[in-house]
Simulated scan of single mutants.
Amino acid sequence: MSEDKDEWDIDPRRHSLFALTLAAVFPEWSSKKIARWLDLNPRSLQRMLGKGPDSPPIPDRVKKQAGEMADRVRDARLAEHLDDFIASMRSQGIDDDVIAAWLSSRHKRLVDRDIE
Rank of each mutant, 00 (worst) to 15 (best):
L20E: 11
T21I: 11
T21F: 12
L22P: 03
L22N: 06
L22W: 10
A23C: 07
A24V: 00
A24M: 12
V25C: 14
V25P: 00
V25R: 13
V25I: 08
V25M: 11
F26E: 02
F26R: 01
F26N: 00
P27W: 14
E28L: 08
E28G: 06
W29K: 13
W29Q: 12
S30Y: 14
S31W: 14
S31T: 13
S31I: 07
K32L: 12
K33P: 03
K33E: 15
K33V: 15
I34K: 05
I34A: 06
A35G: 04
A35M: 13
A35R: 07
R36C: 01
R36P: 00
W37I: 01
W37H: 04
L38G: 05
D39R: 14
L40Q: 05
L40I: 04
L40Y: 13
L40A: 07
L40C: 09
N41C: 05
P42D: 01
P42R: 07
S44L: 07
S44G: 04
L45H: 10
Q46N: 10
Q46D: 10
Q46W: 07
R47L: 09
R47H: 14
M48E: 06
G50P: 06
G50A: 11
G50W: 03
G50R: 02
G50Y: 03
K51V: 02
K51N: 04
G52H: 05
G52R: 03
P53V: 02
D54K: 02
S55I: 00
S55W: 00
P56C: 05
P57E: 02
P57D: 13
P57A: 12
P57G: 03
P59K: 07
P59M: 10
D60A: 11
R61N: 10
R61K: 15
R61T: 02
V62H: 09
V62I: 15
K63W: 15
K64I: 01
K64D: 08
K64A: 01
K64N: 08
Q65S: 01
A66W: 13
A66G: 11
G67L: 02
G67D: 06
G67P: 00
E68N: 09
E68F: 04
D71Y: 08
D71H: 06
R72H: 06
D75N: 14
D75T: 02
A76G: 00
A76D: 05
A76V: 03
R77H: 12
L78C: 01
L78A: 12
L78I: 10
A79W: 15
E80W: 15
E80C: 03
H81F: 15
L82K: 09
L82G: 02
L82Y: 12
D84I: 08
D84F: 15
F85D: 03
I86K: 11
I86R: 13
M89C: 12
M89W: 07
S91Q: 13
Q92K: 14
Q92W: 11
Q92S: 06
I94C: 09
I94E: 09
I94H: 12
D96F: 10
D96M: 13
D97Y: 15
D97T: 13
V98H: 12
V98L: 11
I99C: 08
I99A: 07
I99G: 05
A100I: 04
